[in-house]
Design a protein around this nucleic acid. Structure first.
Length: 204
DNA sequence: CTATAGATGCCCT
DNA sequence: GGGCATCTATAGC
């Protein structure tokens, strides 16, 4: 699985940049939760193309979500970017996400990421390496976490047995993830989606 | 903090 | 027409 390797990479669009802190893998033909499970359609065409492009889809009548296509040509594997931590352009993100009352709400969900970074259907199929539409996937040298948090995926009704969600443990921008099963309750859960707030909070 | 309901439009059967 | 890879406001603890 290459999905957890995307953790701590940067997703950049224009003046806004976010560090990827939460992802989910979707495995095409083998995965009933994937949009590509039933084969190629106009909507899913990009996923069947080469890796390194962006698959952007529209859902729930109002939200855009973005994926990094990562399979070989024809395999339709994709990684959903579920959350990023703002790195640059926070002021711009605030103007795009007026509903966000706290900064953590700017980018702690897949549709929030697209709204904050200004991504929509116009970016479906964009090349993340050449940056042909202004969207790039960058590496600033920060390695992926050695021991990322793992859980089942969020918001799906099939394929729920796979623990194909990875996140940077303890990062405040990881989504709240209600109704998600952490890894192996009895076999040693390494991380839970949320770090418990220590008594007394942080510094003062 | 948790839980719930409603918004809203496209895709595919 | 059914079902969404979601988010927000609101209510209650």
């Amino acid at each position: 699985m290459v999905a957890p390797l995307l953790l701590n990479k940067l997703l950049a669009h224009g003046d806004t940049v976010g560090r990827i802190v939460e992802v989910e893998a979707y495995a095409g033909f083998e995965d009933p939760a994937s949009h590509a499970f039933r084969g190629e359609t106009p909507r899913t065409a990009v996923m069947f193309g080469p890796a390194g492009h962006l698959y952007v889809y529209f859902t729930y009548g109002m939200h855009w979500c973005a994926n990094v296509v990562c399979g070989e040509d024809g395999t339709a594997s994709a990684v959903l970017v579920r959350a990023v931590a703002p790195v640059e352009g926070v002021e711009v993100m605030r103007t795009r996400r007026l509903a966000a009352r706290r900064d953590r709400d700017l980018t702690n969900g897949p549709a929030k990421v697209c709204q904050a970074l200004g991504l929509d259907g116009a970016h479906d199929g964009a090349d993340l390496v050449s940056g042909d539409r202004g969207v790039r996937l960058l590496d600033d040298g920060t390695p992926p976490p050695a021991d990322p948090g793992v859980s089942t995926r969020i918001g799906i009704s099939v394929g729920t047995e796979h623990e194909w969600r990875w996140f940077v443990a303890d990062d405040p921008f990881v989504s709240s993830a209600r109704g998600v099963r952490p890894r192996d309750p009895d076999g040693g859960v390494r991380e839970v989606p949320r770090a418990a707030t220590p008594p007394g909070g942080g510094p003062r």
